[in-house]
Simulated scan of single mutants.
Amino acid sequence: MVIRLLAALALVAAGGARAATIDGEVRQGRLVFGHAERWEEIRYDGRVLHVAPDGGFVLGIGRDAAGELAIEVRDDKDKVTTLRRPILTQDWDIQRIDGLPDKKVNPDPETQERIKWERSRIQAARQADRAAFDWQAGFRWPATGRISGIYGSQRILNGQPRQPHLGLDVAVPTGTPIKAAAAGRVTLAAGDLYFTGGTVIIDHGAGVQTLYAHLSRVDVSEGQAVTAGQTIALSGATGRVTGPHLHFGLAWYGLQLDPAPYLPKAD
């Protein structure tokens, strides 16, 4: 036993062994968590991942990802190995929404230019790349109410198929306080975007962000640090909606994921 322990300690000191791990299963639309040793560099999809002081790292798997996850692990001897896991698939629901104004379903050319500019602004906010790890503390509900829309569902607007719904909708009355799901820094605070109306994005470090949309009032500003549970806005029915609710999103460097698995179970 003593000999095996000494041999293991010598191997750790040398650095050359692959010790990085992936925690749990890998599913479409989910975050993937793992741990690395101090001498290891973790790469995924061409990006060097931020690793927390305790070795934790995180990445995202898109809704339509297929095949296997492959993470490169480089040790201090420049030896590269690969962690591989199969990507488990999900079944997605179909939702039909009728009665929307036609201009909201088929915007005119001028509005298309506005949409393009707003998307570039959102994309810039989603590329925040801080070596911060607020995501490790977990997430809380930004508001509680009936779940009126789920992640991954395919929406058909006025009979026309649209992109999947990439968030969680919580039906709450206009004026309901909206809380930060975790501590972080505000990267977007917009009062009136075409699709999402009043919108806030909070960066929680290492590429993890949450989004809060259709807000009637925004109470934070870009660059502001917020704490978990802090009121950041009031809910509303702004943007492209059929009624008041909060659209709550989770993303990893802009790759939109399902927030539901990371929220406390409803009472």
Score class of each variant (00 low, 15 high):
Val80Gln: 02
Gly67Pro: 02
Leu5Trp: 12
Gln136Thr: 11
Asn106Glu: 13
Asp93Gly: 12
Ser216Cys: 10
Ala13Arg: 11
Ser148Tyr: 08
Ser153Cys: 05
Arg217Asn: 03
Ile94Ser: 12
Pro264Ile: 07
Tyr253Trp: 13
Ser153Trp: 01
His247Ala: 11
Gly60Ser: 07
Asp102Met: 09
Thr21Ala: 09
Gly207Trp: 10
Arg43Gln: 13
Gly138Phe: 00
Pro109Val: 00
Leu88Lys: 14
Gly207Met: 09
Ile61Ala: 07
Val48Glu: 05
Ala183Trp: 05
Asp98Ala: 14
Leu188Met: 14
Leu9Trp: 12
Asp45Trp: 03
Arg130Thr: 07
Tyr194Met: 05
Arg185Cys: 08
Leu69Phe: 02
Asp76Phe: 11
Pro107Asp: 01
Gln230Arg: 11
Leu188Cys: 10
Val220Ile: 01
Ile201Gln: 11
Gln256Cys: 08
Asp102Tyr: 09
Ala128Val: 04
Pro86Leu: 12
Ala181Thr: 13
Ile147Phe: 07
Ala8Tyr: 07
Glu68Asn: 10
Gly149Tyr: 00
Gly67Phe: 04
Asp78Pro: 09
His245Val: 01
Asp219Ser: 11
Gly16His: 01
Ser235Cys: 06
Arg130Gln: 14
Asp203Pro: 12
Gly138Thr: 07
Asp54Asn: 15
Ile202Arg: 00
Asp192Ala: 13
Gly55Tyr: 03
Leu11Cys: 11
Ala181Trp: 02
Ile97Ser: 00
Ala266Ile: 02
Leu263Val: 03
Thr196Pro: 12
Phe248Ser: 03
Arg4Leu: 15
Ala228Leu: 02
Asp64Phe: 14
Arg121Met: 02
Glu37Thr: 00
Pro161Asn: 05
Ala190Met: 05
Arg74Ile: 13
Ala13Gln: 09
Leu193Phe: 00
Val105Ile: 12
Met1Ala: 04
Asp192His: 02
Ala19Cys: 06
Lys104Trp: 13
Leu188Arg: 09
Pro161Tyr: 04
Phe139Trp: 10
Trp117Pro: 01
Gly62Asp: 15
Gly159Thr: 08
Thr210Tyr: 08
Trp92Ile: 13
Gln154Thr: 13
Ala125Ser: 13
Ile115Asp: 04
Asp78Tyr: 11
Ala7Met: 13
Gly239Phe: 10
Arg185His: 04
